[in-house]
C-alpha cells in the first residue's frame, strides 16, 4: 500500500498536474486559433531554460524564491517571446487553412528547439541541485517537500485560469470564441485580443509546467517534446477547447502512466516502463475511437 502510494500514485499526481497545466494551453489554442500547436512543448522547454538562466544569474538556490520570484519572471519572458513568434509566424497565416498553421507550428517546434540547443547546449542541467527534504506522514506516506509546492502551485494556477475564464470579460470572450469563432466575430468581439490572451495564458502555463517538471526531474532540451503527446492526449481526452477537461485529462494521463508499471498482477510491472510514454497515445486512440469529442464534450471536427 505504502509503496503504491509513494512510488506510483503520488508521482502520477505530480506528472498529472504538470500535464494538466500544459494541456490547458494546447486545448485553448486548439479551440480558439483552431490548430494543434506542435510547438507547445518547445515553449515549455524554452521557459525552463529561461528559468535556469535566471537561477544561474541570481544564484538563488532554494525552491520557494525560485517558484515565487524567478518562475513568474520566466513566465513573463516566455509570454513575450511567444507573442513575438505569433506576430512573425502565425499572424500572417491567420487566414490560411488550419493545416498550414499546423505545419508552421511543426516548423517552429524545430526552430525553437534548435535555438534552445544552440544557446544552452544539450547537456542535462538541474534547477534545484542537491538532496531535497522529504515529508513523512502517518508512518507510511513519504514524499519530497517539493511535491507539495508543485501540486500547490499547479492548483493555484488552475484556480487562476478558472477565475479568468469565469469572471473576466476577456476570459468569457475566450470561451465564447472557443465555442464559435464565427459568432464571436459577428458579436463584435475583438478576436485579435482574444488570440493574444490565449497565447499569454498558454505560454505562461507552459513555462510554469516546465519549471515544475524541471524542479521534479532535470532540465533537458527534449523535455517539452517528450510530454507533447501526453498533453495532446490530455486535451483530446478532456474535449478540445475545454480547459477544465484538459485539467482532468492531464491528471488521468499522468496517473495512468505511472500506475501502468505497478505490479498489479504478479511480481513484475504490468507494463514495461519503457512503454510508459505509449500510455498517453493508447488512451488517445481509445478516446478517438469511442468518443472523439472527449469526456467533456468538446468540439467534434
Amino acid at each position: 500500500m505504502a509503496e503504491f502510494i509513494n512510488f506510483y500514485l503520488i508521482p502520477g499526481l505530480i506528472l498529472g498536474s504538470i500535464y494538466a497545466l500544459g494541456a490547458i494551453g494546447i486545448t485553448m489554442t486548439f479551440g480558439i486559433l483552431r490548430f494543434a500547436n506542435f510547438a507547445h512543448g518547445e515553449t515549455m522547454t524554452l521557459g525552463v531554460y529561461i528559468a535556469w538562466s535566471l537561477v544561474q544569474l541570481t544564484g538563488i538556490k532554494s525552491l520557494v524564491p525560485i517558484l515565487l520570484v524567478l518562475m513568474p519572471v520566466s513566465m513573463m519572458l516566455t509570454i513575450m517571446i511567444v507573442l513575438l513568434i505569433d506576430k512573425a509566424f502565425y499572424k500572417p497565416l491567420r487566414a490560411s487553412p488550419v493545416i498550414i498553421l499546423v505545419i508552421a507550428s511543426f516548423g517552429l517546434m524545430l526552430m525553437i528547439r534548435s535555438v534552445t540547443q544552440f544557446s544552452w547546449g544539450v547537456q542535462l542541467k538541474t534547477i534545484l541541485p542537491g538532496i531535497q527534504p522529504r515529508i513523512n506522514l502517518l508512518d507510511f506516506l513519504s514524499f519530497p517537500l517539493k511535491h507539495v509546492f508543485i501540486v500547490g502551485g499547479a492548483l493555484l494556477l488552475m484556480y487562476a485560469v478558472h477565475h479568468v475564464l469565469t469572471y473576466t470579460k476577456i476570459g468569457k470572450a475566450m470561451r465564447a470564441m472557443s465555442d464559435s469563432p464565427e459568432l464571436a466575430r459577428l458579436t463584435g468581439i475583438n478576436t485579435e485580443n482574444v488570440v493574444m490572451a490565449t497565447w499569454v495564458m498558454g505560454a505562461g502555463l507552459a513555462c510554469a509546467a516546465g519549471v515544475f517538471l524541471a524542479v521534479d526531474t532535470q532540465v533537458d532540451t527534449m523535455m517539452g517534446f517528450k510530454i507533447l503527446l501526453p498533453m495532446f492526449a490530455a486535451a483530446i481526452l478532456g474535449g478540445v477547447g475545454k480547459p477544465y477537461g484538459a485539467m482532468a485529462g492531464g491528471l488521468v494521463i499522468g496517473v495512468a502512466e505511472e500506475l501502468s508499471s505497478y505490479h498489479w498482477i504478479g511480481d513484475g510491472p504490468l507494463l514495461n516502463p519503457g512503454y510508459k510514454q505509449g500510455i498517453a497515445f493508447a488512451i488517445m486512440i481509445i478516446i478517438l475511437l469511442w468518443r472523439p469529442t472527449g469526456l467533456f464534450k468538446g468540439k467534434s471536427f
Binding site: F30, G274, F281, M284
Partner: peptide, 28 residues
C-alpha cells in the same frame, strides 16, 4: 481507420504518435 474521419489535425497528432511508438518498440 481511427483518424481520417476526424479533422486533419488529429491525423497529424496520431501519426507523430505512431512514429514515437515505433521508436519505443525498436528501443524496447
Amino acid at each position: 481507420k481511427v483518424c481520417l474521419k476526424l479533422r486533419s489535425d488529429y491525423l497529424a497528432i496520431a501519426t507523430i504518435g505512431i512514429a514515437e511508438i515505433f521508436r519505443l518498440i525498436v528501443n524496447n
